[in-house]
Structure formats: C-alpha cells, structure tokens
C-alpha cells in the first residue's frame, strides 16, 4: 500500500507534466476509483471521477444524425424533380424559339418566291412585246431580199 502510494505520487507528477501514457492514466483512474484516498489527493479523485462519468455520458442516436434515413422521395427526388423541370423549361423554350424561327423563314421564302415570280412574269411580257416589234421589223427584211435579187439576178444580164 505504501509502495503503491509512492508510485501513484510519481505518476501524478508525470500526469501533471503531460507525459503519462494511456496505460498509466488508466492506472491512475483505477486507483482513484477504488481506494480510499489520502486527503491531499482528494482533488484528483474528483477529477478522475468526473472524467469517467463524462466518458460514460450516453446519448441515444438522434434522427437528425442519420441523413441516410431521410426518405428518398423528400430530398433526393425533390432535387431530381427540380432538375427535371428546369430541363423541361429549357426544352420548351428551345422548341418555341426554333418553331418561330422556322415559320418565319418559311414566310420569308414564300415572299421571295412571289417576288421572283412577278419579276419573271414582267420579264416575259417585255420579251413578248419586243418579239412582236422584231417580227414587224422583219417584214422589211423581205424588201431587201427582193431588191437584192432584182439587182444581182444573173438572168437580168
């Protein structure tokens, strides 16, 4: 017992220097738990009793400590749904945009074709007019032909 106490005092010194091993600290803990200790060591008894009491503080696992138990529909799916709706919106906007773009293009092309048709039409009518003029003038060509044959006719020699 005397021997023990001496050993304990040495351990306490080491303990206060922060140099004890876990084993030595367990030894001290055991000593202060079981023995009737000398008055001058009472503060250490309180200290080690407090430590062991704190170590045993139990607390039931709380719901908020178990994020894996969160129903999948409430957290993950909500997140998924959000993404889903976001992409749906993007798609809708894209479709609307491209739709108006294509119909606008179609309208433009139709207009262009109409203009081209009208232009071709007026070009044809111009051609027709000039053709008539040309055939009318071609009549005079005949006169030349006659005149030529009269002048150059070898039978008239």
């Amino acid at each position: 017992m005397r021997m023990d106490l001496q050993k304990i005092e040495i351990l306490i010194e080491k303990y206060l220097e922060g140099k004890t091993t876990l084993k030595e600290e367990a030894l001290l803990g055991n000593f202060f738990q079981m023995e009737e200790v000398p008055t001058h060591l009472m503060p250490y008894k309180d200290l080690f009793a407090f430590f062991s009491k704190e170590r045993e503080t139990a607390i039931a696992p709380l719901k908020q400590w178990a994020p894996w138990e969160t129903p999948k529909s409430s957290l993950r799916d909500l997140e998924k749904q959000w993404w889903h709706s976001k992409w749906t919106n993007v798609a809708v906007v894209l479709i609307l945009f491209s739709g108006s773009f294509f119909s606008g293009r179609q309208y433009y092309q139709k207009k262009q074709a109409e203009i081209a048709y009208n232009q071709t039409l007026s070009a044809f009518s111009l051609l027709a007019q000039n053709y008539q003029k040309a055939t009318a003038s071609a009549v005079y060509l005949n006169e030349f032909e006659q005149a030529k044959t009269k002048i150059y006719n070898p039978n008239n020699k």
Partner: peptide, 20 residues
Amino acid sequence: LRVALSRARKTLKENLVKHH
C-alpha cells in the same frame, strides 16, 4: 500538445485544491 495538456491539468488541479 504536452504543454497545453500540462497547463490544463495543473489549472484544474489548482482550482480543485482551492475548492477543497
């Protein structure tokens, strides 16, 4: 770490001695 531990333990001890 050793210094912090030593200081803390000594402070605790002194406070408890005072109380006793």
